[in-house]
């Protein structure tokens, strides 16, 4: 069995980890938006410095166009939020529909699968129902 080729590890020193210059802003694009419902939600925890952190999973179902055809898409996205969005979402319940946006980052140095770091959050159903 062939293992997937490992990408070079992240640079560790501060200098090489610098974000590219403003003129190359396109090279720094990392934006994800997703609507879905809350599948799982961990308990609100705090970092040693006292910042709230919440880990959760969004289940997404929608119609998308691919190769000129409409198709159904389903996926689950592991998410993490820190600070205000974490506190906001900690009040949500399972099944709530939310629109999240943020950036993708590897889970850890060893586990390179992405996690969506949610920076803004919107409860979609709540608005629709006029609550």
């Amino acid at each position: 069995m062939r293992k997937p080729a490992r990408r070079s590890p992240l640079p560790q020193s501060l200098e090489s980890a610098q974000v590219p210059e403003r003129s190359d802003q396109k090279l720094a694009i990392n934006q994800t938006q997703l609507v879905g419902h809350l599948l799982e939600r961990g308990a609100l925890r705090y970092t040693p410095a006292g910042i709230a952190v919440l880990e959760f999973v969004i289940g997404h179902v929608s119609q998308q166009i691919e190769a000129d055809t409409t198709r159904t898409v389903e996926c689950e996205m592991a998410c993490i939020a820190a600070g205000t969005p974490a506190k906001l979402l900690s009040k949500g319940k399972q099944g709530d529909s939310v629109l999240v946006s943020g950036f993708l980052a590897a889970r850890s140095l060893k586990r390179r699968t992405p996690v969506l770091h949610v920076t803004t959050i919107e409860f979609v159903e709540g608005i629709e129902n006029g609550i």
Binding site: L10, Q12, S13, L14, A17, T47, P48, A49, I51, V53, I80, A82, G83
Partner: peptide, 14 residues
């Protein structure tokens, strides 16, 4: 002080 985020990459979830 316990740093608010990682001095190397900026991550808050230390």
């Amino acid at each position: 002080m316990i740093p608010r985020n990682c001095p190397s990459c900026g991550n808050v979830d230390l």
